[in-house]
Design a protein around this nucleic acid. Structure first.
Lengths: 228, 228
DNA sequence: TAGAAAATGTGACAAAAATCATATTTTATT
DNA sequence: AATAAAATATGATTTTTGTCACATTTTCTA
């Protein structure tokens, strides 16, 4: 069993505020899991009863609309914590978390962490800060979804993805998403996403190399994203 | 100066967890304000430095998109607390709060409340719960905005408004919104909102009486909202 | 490695929604 | 009460986006 107090990943999320003793205790009750690409960490309707600390890999957080279409709300990476809301209210999850690549995650049971919420103000404050920041992000996303065109949203999404995941050896956005995933992030039909990507490529704003997307002209995309 | 510990409105929000002493202290530092219809409580770019407790009236929380269009994210009513995020992070507001009718609000300075955040776990937990619930709402709204048609969103919005604000003496949704406000809630052009309202009226799903909107056939609207 | 399945790409068309123009009604102001 | 201003309404048109059909390429699997 690996030791939480020696885990680097912890430094990136609220767990960094826990004491050495708390972490030791956590090491004893946490469970590590390997999640294969395409498999869920959890799904809509599941009782989470704890949080997941992402040790490695990337997953998409999504939700089905009443129309039967899938919407990706967020993409989560190494170091992030998911399922915090299960600590606060005991409802079932309204979201899916599906691995976009092979992942290594640690599950920490609710009861173990709730104690810290009650006793460790620095930890609680950090959770609050994370939530406040998510809320701000969500507000922005609502406005974008409601007011921006699909083309604007695609340009913005490409820029955001590059900011969040950086570029790989060949200068491409360092995350593998299918065209369908991209469509589900911007909230459009897969065909529309493909068409616009082709258009961006034709205009030399982006380029493809295998599955990779390379942003060639960032300025172009910024202009499009802001409505010019 | 009115006494916070005798204020009924407090019962509806996180402030209900404060002790009598805390409330006495709060009474001494809070300021009451009358906000006229159409005037802002705060605007994008303002430093809030505290929270507002809505004693009476209704306001819209909105945000400008980069396209220059206005999006209403939420509608706040008596008993709600707004500006909680200013307690947690010291950035400027990214949102506007504009009165939809004459309002009475109390401003409680940040420093006064932050103490309670540090010392009163029940209060902190309640803020956390409120945020968790807002976050869930936001997730749902993102999915709706991204995946539902304008018609679906309008039907859903009318139903939500009735649930939230109830009906008045004549059976109409008990909130006064301009057509433009409605359009800004669902994220569409004012003309489109008007056209769809007319369509709903023609189909006898809703009726108008002066400025009032009456839901005649709830079932119809539910069907439309869910995509049938 | 052949064949099936899935993902990507493109065209044609339909539907949804935005925009612009203008008319009518309501509300505010003097 | 008369006028101006704002809000509401509707038509015509254009733009955006979705849908369906199908071709091609890539990936998976036996």
């Amino acid at each position: 069993m690996s030791k939480c107090d020696q885990c680097i990943v912890r430094q990136f999320n609220s767990l960094k505020h826990l004491s050495k003793e708390d972490l030791m205790r956590m090491s004893n009750c946490k469970t590590s899991k390997i999640i294969k690409k395409g498999e869920p960490i959890f799904e809509e309707g599941d009782y989470l009863n704890g949080v997941y600390c992402i040790k490695d890999g990337v997953c998409k957080i999504s939700k089905m609309s009443e129309n039967g279409k899938n919407q990706i709300i967020n993409i989560i990476k190494r170091g992030d914590l998911i399922g915090e809301r299960s600590l606060i209210s005991e409802e079932v999850s309204n979201l899916n978390a599906i691995a976009l690549e092979d992942m290594e995650v640690c599950f920490i049971p609710r009861d173990e962490i709730v104690r810290d919420l009650e006793k460790n103000p620095a930890f609680t404050m950090d959770i609050l800060k994370t939530m406040a920041s998510s809320l701000k992000n969500s507000d922005n996303l609502i406005v974008d979804m409601a007011q921006k065109s699909v083309k604007q949203r695609l340009a913005e999404t490409l820029l955001k993805l590059q900011t969040k995941f950086g570029v790989n050896e060949i200068g491409a956005i360092d995350i593998q998403l299918s065209r369908e995933d991209i469509a589900n992030i911007i909230g459009t039909a897969t065909e529309s996403a493909i068409r616009l990507l082709s258009e961006f490529k034709k205009n030399k704003s982006i380029g493809f190399k295998g599955k990779n997307i390379i942003i060639i002209n960032k300025n172009d995309l910024e202009k499009i994203a802001n409505g010019f």
